[in-house]
Design a protein around this nucleic acid. Sequence first.
RNA 1: CGGGGUGUGGCGCAGUCCGGUAGCGCGCCUGGUUUGGGACCAGGAGGUCGCGGGUUCGAAUCCCGCCGCCCCGACCA
Length: 502
Amino acid sequence: MTQAQNAKAQRITPRAKDFSEWYGDVITQAQMADYSPVRGCMVIRPHGYRIWELMQRALDDMFRASGHRNAYFPLFIPMSFLAKEAEHVEGFAKEVAIVTHTRLRATGKEGAGAVAVDPASALEEPLVVRPTSETIIYAMFAKWIQSYRDLPLLLNQWCNVVRWEMRTRLFLRTTEFLWQEGHTAHADEAGAEQEARLILGIYRRFAEEWMAMPVLTGLKTDSEKFAGALRTYAIEALMQDNKAIQGGTSHNLGQNFSKAFDVKYQTAAGGLEHVWNTSWGVSTRLIGGLIMTHSDDNGLVAPPKLAPVQVAIVPIWKTDEERTQLSAVGRELKSDLEQTGLRVEFDERENLKPGAKYFEWEGLGVPVRLEIGPRDLASGQVVLARRTGGKAPVPLQGAATAVTKALDEIQAALFAAARERREKNSLRGATKAQFLEFIKGSGGFVYGGFCGDPACETEIKQQTNATIRVLPDPEFRSKEVPKSCMWCGAPSIAEAVWAQAY
RNA sequence: CGGGGUGUGGCGCAGUCCGGUAGCGCGCCUGGUUUGGGACCAGGAGGUCGCGGGUUCGAAUCCCGCCGCCCCGACCA
């Protein structure tokens, strides 16, 4: 077997063969993450972390522009805090990590038994490792908020959280993950509601404009809402295997937490009122969504705006003279592109043939590759190859313009393709029979009437594993309003979108 | 927690049925020749065969126990 054939044989598992293996292969190939020695945890490698940093920057700018400020609250939360809001405890009790001791001691034994928990170091009150920070943040809000003049209070934090999950998958669900959590306090319900909706809009814009990932926005049903929230809004995207992913949530918490933590403010009229809160978050899970939205059987496809490397320049040379010449031209090209703000690598490695480099950069998801050899040099051009397919020569002089244009086109094309795929895999106005056939077949988003009865929702979930992803916002609703429940036939209270989900 | 699979150089695997002291491909290192879609030749480094017991002259291989990981189901961003 030649090396080429061998490499082909070891390639990424095709999506059609095994989607889940494909997903893992893409991550490995792109060096985005690795399994850690701790079960359920992952190491985010530089190429994956860079995507997260780019996401953070974009989101953070949007938060800041809308008046939010960043802060940092501690990892540890007194166990008693979690118990203060009844629904909230119930929601998280099953998956919190608890710190009970503060010391190890040497046992004098060999190997793994050489250290043990020092029983003398038991904490009086155990600490929980935050699964989310509502409790500790609102405990602090109670200290900081006194008057209506202190409102609204608009904070955000970037941090890690821990939820002890039974089954984990890289990026999509890990025991520890990175996210941002926004927490705000408002003088009235309208303020909180407006904030929750504002953030949902930011999440949608981020998903569409940066990730090139089309999303539905809407309201979660009670069974799917955040534990402790009045209402939960979410963005939902459809992956290539036709399973849905919840990409971000924005909660109107009402006064549930302000009452539990006694967060009160004095009104202009002199009265005393509990504040209205919101909380909202997106996590590294979005990276999983990004992978499953765009990538193909050759590896990662990164949308240009979030690609750690946007342009890879690959020189092609034979003689030493060509090498010297191309090395100089390549460096200059790199520098030109960088000056227009692009993220560029010039691949001068000598131990790899150009073809090998192409495959490597493709696996890493680089949207644009510039190939430049003696023939191009002679005619004053470079070959511009797109990750999504197609090669064409462009003038070497002013290549930055062509590259920028290509990146913009790729960004737009990825979004359009993803949206088209989603629509192709959506079924509207479904009857029960159509719903069953669709969900058990290829799957996707199913739009239909919903009676509002949780029992109906549960029955559907039990029989099909599909859940209501959202009660969609007006612009995503079908033209014809469903009159009756897709499942039970009772009068419909709202249109719902069902899907099997991650 | 239930079901399935799997643990052998960094990665992917063969060897296990039928015990005889570990091999292949990729990757890595050195030198040379190469370079327009995964280069080739030569030399080389690297493994307590998941862990613990047992059987045996001898165990990756047979027996007993344990553990890890991956995939599939119920909970979740």
